[in-house]
Each structure stands twice: as C-alpha cells, then as structure tokens.
Design a protein around this nucleic acid. Sequence first.
DNA 1: GAGCTATTCCCCAGAAATGGGGAGTTTCAA
DNA 2: TTGAAACTCCCCATTTCTGGGGAATAGCTC
Lengths: 247, 247
Amino acid sequence: MIIATAQQFDEAVKAATTMHELDDLLHDITREMGFQHFALSHHVDVPRAPQPALRIHNYPGDWEAFFDAERLGPSDPVHRASHLTNAGFHWSMLPQLIVLTRRDEEILAKSRKAGLTDGFTVPAHIPGESAGSCSFASARGKTPRREWMPLAQFIGATAFEGARRLVGVRRIDQDRPRLSDRQRECIYWAARGKSDWEISKILGISHDTAIQYMKEARGRYGVGNRTQLAIHALFDGALTFTDALRR
Amino acid sequence: MIIATAQQFDEAVKAATTMHELDDLLHDITREMGFQHFALSHHVDVPRAPQPALRIHNYPGDWEAFFDAERLGPSDPVHRASHLTNAGFHWSMLPQLIVLTRRDEEILAKSRKAGLTDGFTVPAHIPGESAGSCSFASARGKTPRREWMPLAQFIGATAFEGARRLVGVRRIDQDRPRLSDRQRECIYWAARGKSDWEISKILGISHDTAIQYMKEARGRYGVGNRTQLAIHALFDGALTFTDALRR
DNA sequence: GAGCTATTCCCCAGAAATGGGGAGTTTCAA
DNA sequence: TTGAAACTCCCCATTTCTGGGGAATAGCTC
C-alpha cells in the first residue's frame, strides 16, 4: 500500500506539466503521510534571488513572512543541517547535526509557535546548483509515524526532481556543441587550472596547437574565455566537478 | 513488510561500527530487493585518489579491474548521469539524462557482459564533497520490480550516509572559504566571462580594486586562476550555473 | 587602544590569453 | 574522388591576468 502510494506519486509527478499540479500532489501526499505541511525550496533568499529559485509550500503565512524578513533561506538551521547529509532527517536530530546557536533556538521556537512542531527534511543537492530540500512538518500532537520516513525520503527526492524539471533548472542537453577529442582534453586540463603551455606539455603537442584547440573549443561553445568555456562544459556534462577539482 | 525492511536497515546502519558490517548489511538488503549487486562509492579514481574515498561493492572482479584500469570513477556514464539529479534513476533512463558517446556505449556493453544488465542508481551529493552514489544492479533476466525503487532510493541514501559516518568523511563545510561581499560579486561577474576591467565598471570601482578582489578571492580558495576560482565557487554553492550562464 | 577585516585605491613587470592570419597531413564518409 | 573534419604546426599584435609591492579609511572586537 505504501509502495503503491510512492509509485503513484512518482508517476503523477512525471506527468505533471505545471508547478501548480506539483503543488497539489504534494498537498495530498503530505496529508497521506500524516503531516500537515510541506516546503520544497532552494536555500536562497527567494524574494531577492537574482536567478529563478524553487519554492512551493503550504507553511503558515506568518512563518513565511518571518522567514523572508529575516532572510533565513541560507541560514535556517534545518537548511544548514541539510547541507551536511544526503539522507532525510528528523528535526529532533538537529542538535546532532549542527551546533545550534542561540539564534537558531529562537528560530526553532518561532517555527514551533507558528505551528511547525516537528518535521522531516530531505536534502536535495546537485553539484553547481543551489542547495535545496523538501521538508514535511506536523503540528502539535500529530507526530507522524517513523514508518513513513522511508516514504518521505522518496517523496521528497522525487518531488524536488519534478520541480527542477518543471522550472527548467537544467535543460537536459539538447543542442550541445560537438567537441573533438583534443578539444575536450584541452578543456579538461584548462578546467583544472592548467595554462595552454602546460596543456601542450601534458598532451605532447606544441604550444600553438594547444592554443588552437582552445580557440576552436571557445568557438564551439560561442564563448570568449576559458572560464566560460569550463563552466559550459561542466554544465552540459562534458566535464564533471570530479574532473575539474582533482589536483 | 517493505517498510519494516527499510526501518530495520536504517537502524542496523546506524548501529554499525565498521565498514565491514555495512558491507554485510548492503549485501543482504541487495538480495532482499531482488538485485544481485551493489556499489556504493565516491566518483573518483579510487586507487589514485589522494584523499580517502568511499567504495564498497560486490560487483564482479573483472568489472572492477576494468573500471580502475580505465579510471572510470569520474567519467562512467552512470556516474555522470547521477551528477544531474538527486532522485534515483533506472539505467534505462540514461539516454534521457546524458548524451551517450560511443565510449559510453562501449562501457555499458562491457558492464552488461560483466553481468550488470540493469540497475538503479541513487545519487549522493553533499556540497563540498566528492560526488557519490549507491547503485543496485541485476543480472540478465532478473529484473527487479519497479515497486522496489522507492525502497532502493531510501536504502541508497541511508547506506551512503552510514558510510560517510564510518569513514569519517569530514564535511569541509567549515573550511569553506569565507568570501567578502565584494569578492563574491567579482567572482559572480568573472564566472559570467567579464574581464576585471568590465567588473570594475559594473561595480563602480577602479580597475585596480577589481583586480585586488580577484586576487583575494583566489587566495581564499587557494587557486591560481579565475577558471578554477569560478569552478570552486560553483561547486561549493557560492555560485550557481544559473548565475554563471546568464548572459 | 591594538588588532582584525572589509573596502578602496595605486604602481610595476612578467606571464598568459585572445583574436587574427595561414598551411600541411590523415581519415572517413558521400 | 571530392570534401569535410580532425589533427598538427607556425606567426603576429593586443589585451588580460597574475603576482608582487604599498597604503588609506572605516568598523568591529577583545
């Protein structure tokens, strides 16, 4: 039965075409899991974020107002804790995950007062994107059963992924430039901070040739410098962070 | 019953004190979910990684040998795909997640030949740490039921978290460089391909000052050029791709 | 007040990147 | 066989980056 719920949710999310639909789905599943509230969001200061950020929730309005007024997006203790793990966690575990400052205690007290007594948060991190999470919260005296946590973990991850798709956080690579092997190798080393001269030595080619490949690669991506080149290659998957950060 | 399995696993992982115990737990649960193999690892070239990296698995020995010989840790198509999502995915979804090169096709063919016919991978990303994942694979003709995927998502995340705890992967959250506002703004524009001179005009400061902030930012991250600077900032979340790709 | 950081400005010299030009071979497909 | 694309090398001029100095103001903390 629980499994059926999970699968239905997964399929419904994949079929959703608007954030509004996703919102509805989260609404329903939240209740079904025994929670009262959900909040799926990027950990940024949403009202002031320069780029489009995710946020759908049904938290109490006054909590949202407080949250935004205090710019808690990046500093909320639940969010901070979610930056240290990839597994979902009960809010009761917070003290084991981060050091709670006085300010944090105030925030938590305030959230309890707003009707968010207990909760479960599923982190959602993707290299190069804003940190995010999907939380489920319950009001006083309505503690959801521990048995639902594995389901919540799945629901949170699935919902976040669906939201990313709907908002178009990352368009799966469509018109990606085709790179030659040598061009790719040059980008790889350039992203690791190598100069054209160093790249030429690594690849055993002349300095001029390395420069040439970098020129061509910039041309393929339509960018004018190696920083943008590396970032585009990272974004479209031609490179990974593990490539670029290795030293 | 499935829920009971998940909970038991969760508790057992939390109680485990050695990687060996975790290995055993994964062994059992893998079978219980209808898979034959599991692999929990960081996406690095494990034998050559300078820092401690996670890897426990029961993949066939010849596959592991091939994997290491070819240094697939960072470039394996399944791993690459897992860098683009936070939700678990079937390997059959790979073509929708990344562009499969001929090399990728070869790798996948090789893995099938080694007995890894189909599988399900749960990404595990934490800002500032190596990308990782927990995969479950099945041999020919033994396709695990879709119903188990929500469970697999939970198991993968839980197991990865347990492994991190056991290995003592320290979160470099604390060591993440602290940037001043101006430094961050300079990185932001530099990642968007602006020169120091352009940045100075945008921020309304002198050219020299922009150069100065870039120097300091490089110093904070311990890197020597703006490409690495941008990549590091992207990786640890100080920047996002949405920032860097905007034109 | 001493010490720290952020912010702002300045100078210099060498290294590196960028944009422009050209030209040969090989390989693979139409 | 004709052509496209990859791979390789070379030259030039200009711009940009990087690393090394130094210094003033403001604000905050111990």
